[in-house]
Design a protein around this nucleic acid. Structure first.
Lengths: 237, 237
DNA sequence: CTGCATCCGCCTCGATACTG
DNA sequence: CAGTATCGAGGCGGATGCAG
């Protein structure tokens, strides 16, 4: 019954403080994260956010709708879901930025490992890892099958884009589970070891493996540190 | 008595969740924001973060040092300050991203206006507003004097950089107060009106005013309303 | 069955007082 | 100056109730 009264604010004329006034509370950015993949229903969100508590999710959703970051998909009916507005979608880049930091942080620390792993998180991680500056002259696509989630990365004209669903003619198809995938992203699992042990299976053009790893910034250490980007070294697989 | 025990975590294998486990709590990103400008002492932080409470600041600082984002400038003595590590500094981009969102959000909403305004926030706002894609063929610099804070933007070879201190030979010098400055950034104050009313004073090459405004994305009317989020979001079905 | 609202115990937060 | 100790208020998490 409070509505918008008593909102806690940093009360600073600062762009960052304004942002945190809106999306800085607990769970809020994770709700946005879920909606980045498309509209979701209340119960879908509840299931994707273990531990949030029903009242808190309802409160967050109401606040976000009120702030103009979300809209109900069907304003009248109660059966509809929620989707991001343009303003809400503009959090995509900041979320990717924070994700990059999250990967960098996790790379240097011990992970709880009791954490729940979902394949849909992997899409976000791939988006965060891909860097257009490392596309070089590549023009191909890589398909990922993390658990039962399928998506792919299209690299074309110096730009890499992550898209849901299978690829047309991927030069590489990577299959793994969500847990192994994140261990790779956090540099706590060496890609070569993962391939050998079978935690990750790669099918396609052998040289594409190297190119894909470089695009994701997880070249297995030895790696070329020179910025000369000749078309891939010989891949010893 | 808790120390580091019982740390509240989202417990998800997700890059964003990892990030928020570290910097997602209240005040944490604002502490990082303060340290982006250089080392700060405990009392400087207290003063820059009105309402934080001494125990909470101490707890946050300890947690951040423990997480490896901060280090005391003088490990032994208690008189030293705190500074960011490389890992902590990697939050610069995510913070700028959130700041861009904060400006976009504030542009469409009523601002409390009772908020405390500090000139040093303006540096961050400028960094967030500047976009290399809008530098064109410009090769000049703009100096800003917001309250008693002086900094400038160097534009050279398609890249814009925000630097502390006065510029060498600025083609434009802008003088204003923090409050007016943020009103400009939030598009709640028209730059032309601000110049006429004297809230903002500009000295230098007249044409540089237009170039500077365009670099900051606050051109008076033609208004690139959707220019900033050229994210090509395919409409959800 | 979905989409919340209510209640309750706990933990975090914010403010003040106090100490080395 | 740089924190620690303490305490009230409120946000959070979990269980349950209830209406459409």
């Amino acid at each position: 019954m409070n509505g918008a009264r008593g909102k806690r604010s940093y009360d600073q004329q600062c762009a960052l403080a304004y942002a945190l006034d809106v999306v800085g509370e607990r769970w809020t950015l994770l709700v946005i994260r879920e909606l980045l993949h498309g509209p979701r229903r209340y119960n879908q969100l509840l299931e994707a956010l273990p531990g949030i508590g029903t009242n808190l999710l309802a409160a967050r959703l109401a606040a976000l709708v009120d702030a103009g970051l979300l809209t109900p998909t069907e304003p009248r009916k109660r059966t509809g879901g929620y989707q991001l507005t343009d303003l809400g979608r503009s959090l995509h880049e900041p979320i990717l930025g924070l994700s990059r930091f999250g990967l960098a942080y996790a790379a240097g620390h011990e992970l709880p490992s009791g954490a729940t792993a979902r394949a849909s998180w992997a899409v976000l991680a791939i988006e965060a890892m891909v860097d257009d500056a490392r596309t070089g002259e590549i023009d191909e696509s890589y398909e990922f099958r993390v658990d039962d989630e399928i998506f792919h990365v299209d690299v074309r004209a110096g730009h890499a884009e992550v898209v849901a669903g299978p690829a047309d003619a991927p030069s590489l198809t990577v299959r793994t589970d969500a847990r192994s995938f994140f261990s790779l992203g956090m540099r706590q699992l060496d890609p070569i070891e993962a391939l050998v042990s079978g935690q990750v299976a790669a099918v396609g053009v052998p040289a594409a493996v190297t190119r894909c790893l470089r695009l994701l910034g997880i070249t297995p250490d030895v790696a070329v540190s020179t910025d000369r980007l000749a078309d891939v070294g010989p891949a010893p697989v």
